[in-house]
């Protein structure tokens, strides 16, 4: 399955809904999407990964790149993910310490810190 991307606004947050496979082939599309959002002044992002079926280290690199971009504007990037097989790669790489990971979009949108 290919990568699917859509965005919507919830309050001051922009929710990016990602589905399908994020790998070395599709990661550039996600990167462009994150760059476009930051370029258009949207610095508080929630990336909903519940529909992601596959995520590799290239995809993680893109998410870290997105986090660095929003932080340069005092922004935030929160992830929504409850799937064990996706969370596993965050744990192996230690990136659970870098990203706030939430159990639902509502929780991520409401979160402040």
């Amino acid at each position: 399955m290919d990568l699917s991307l859509s965005t919507r606004t919830e309050g001051d947050r922009t929710v990016v809904v990602v589905g399908g496979e994020i790998d070395v082939y599709t990661a550039p599309k996600l990167r462009e999407q994150l760059i476009d959002l930051v370029s258009s002044g949207q610095y508080h992002l929630v990336v909903d990964m519940e529909g992601v079926e596959f995520l590799d280290s290239t995809g993680l690199g893109v998410l870290v790149g997105g986090l660095k971009r929003v932080r340069a504007h005092e922004g935030s990037l929160r992830l929504v993910c409850t799937q064990e097989r996706i969370l596993k790669i965050f744990r192996i790489t230690g990136l659970t310490k870098v990203f706030p990971i939430h159990g639902s979009v509502e929780e991520a949108v409401a979160a402040t810190d």
């Binding site: 990167r31 760059i35 993680l60 690199g61 870290v64 790149g65 660095k68 971009r69 790489t93 230690g94 990136l95 310490k97 870098v98």
Partner: peptide, 13 residues
């Protein structure tokens, strides 16, 4: 440190 490695990548996109 993998986290450092990730964060060191992509300085300007």
């Amino acid at each position: 440190d993998l986290v450092d490695r990730f964060q060191g990548a992509e300085p300007d996109g």
